[in-house]
């Protein structure tokens, strides 16, 4: 019943704002890791969208890259067509991905368990095939590049060092994380977790189960689309890989690695994953994937609820001792 205790106290938002401010001040100190950290922010946002789906609503997906890719291509199309303003481009791309999610929701929500996983997998693969064949539109295997967004807010130009891209991505992630936190605490989030635990009972309590799940699916798709668009705008390119099965599997791995159902799981998972990937691929360019695999296996054996779960387990005894003191 941890849900009851997760009511937001004043201390958490302050601590989170402090971390965000520290990250935003980073370019003043060093510009070495900005591109890498931008990747972390994009992946964290993408993972957060999957957390909304898997961790909150209990909908399984092995094809979430579909929406990431739709957002990325939409942002690229907009910029190529001359709509170069980044913020509106981001929102439009997210909206398109959300609509796609709304359209696919009835198909995905009909199934459950393995079947649901397979429907999402095959829908994702269909989209990947379509983009791969539609060479005239998507550039096929070459992807899209050579577009440029105008300065953010008309002031900050996307620079070579990635300072603007980094701060822009950080801001989008911060806003989405705040929105996710509010949604999680709102009746909508509570209803989703109730549906995950017992859909029949929630229906009996008068919750429109189908509608809530469809809304969650569309919201998650929109957030994934934002992440894709963010990647397109900060890297000035989109590759076919954005829609691939590997990316769908990757985001699921990151979420489980970080911890499903935890607020920080997506953020921790994305940071650990990208940094571990960067470190391992420098250490052993050919076999880094194998080392990553070992890390994944170790997490399952050592930390069943992901890294966030492990941290909570370390912290929990202290918190418990404190409440006992008070009592």
């Amino acid at each position: 019943m941890s849900d009851l205790h997760s009511s937001i106290s004043w201390r958490r938002p302050v601590a989170e704002a402090a971390v965000l401010a520290a990250l935003a001040a980073l370019p003043l100190v060093s510009q070495d890791y900005l591109l890498l950290l931008t990747q972390v922010a994009v992946l964290a946002l993408f993972t957060l969208s999957l957390e909304l789906l898997v961790g909150q609503a209990g909908i399984l997906s092995l094809g979430h890259a579909a929406f990431f890719g739709i957002g990325a291509y939409a942002a690229a199309f907009l910029a190529l067509a001359g709509w170069e303003e980044p913020i509106s481009g981001l929102l439009i791309a997210g909206g398109i991905a959300g609509l796609a999610g709304l359209a696919m929701a009835p198909l995905v929500l009909r199934a459950s368990g393995l079947t649901q996983l397979m429907v999402t997998l095959c829908l994702g693969l269909m989209l990947h095939e379509a983009a791969s064949r539609g060479r005239d539109w998507t550039g096929g295997d070459d992807g899209l590049s050579g577009f440029l967004n105008s300065p953010v807010l008309g002031l900050f130009e996307f620079d070579l060092f990635g300072v603007t891209g980094y701060l822009y991505a950080l801001a989008v992630l911060g806003i989405c994380f705040a929105a996710f936190t509010l949604m999680r605490a709102a009746p909508f989030g509570t209803a989703l977790r109730g549906i995950r635990q017992n859909p029949v009972r929630m229906a009996a309590l008068g919750t429109p189960v189908g509608a809530r799940l469809a809304q969650a699916y569309a919201l998650s798709a929109a957030m994934a689309g934002l992440a894709g668009a963010l990647m397109a705008e900060t890297t000035q390119s989109v590759a076919l890989e954005a829609l691939s099965f590997q990316r769908s599997a990757e985001v699921l791995i990151v979420l489980i690695l970080g911890g499903v159902g935890s607020r920080y799981g997506a953020l921790i998972g994305a940071a650990v994953y990208v940094l571990a990937r960067d470190w391992l691929s420098a250490l052993s360019p050919e076999y880094w994937l194998g080392w990553l695999g070992l890390l994944m296996m170790a997490v399952v054996l050592v930390a069943p609820r992901g890294i966030a779960g492990l941290l909570a387990r370390v912290r929990l005894p202290r918190a418990r001792a404190k409440t006992e003191d008070r009592a």
């Binding site: 898997v54 399984l60 599997a249 699921l252 791995i253 489980i256 690695l257 499903v260 050919e286 076999y287 994937l289 194998g290 080392w291 990553l292 695999g293 070992l294 890390l295 994944m296 296996m297 997490v299 399952v300 054996l301 069943p304």
Partner: peptide
Amino acid sequence: RGPLDQVLFTIGMVYVWIAVSTR
């Protein structure tokens, strides 16, 4: 264990196997 743990673990095994067989 839950299906998500199984997914993470077995995909990890695939990665390890791919690295080993490539080596």
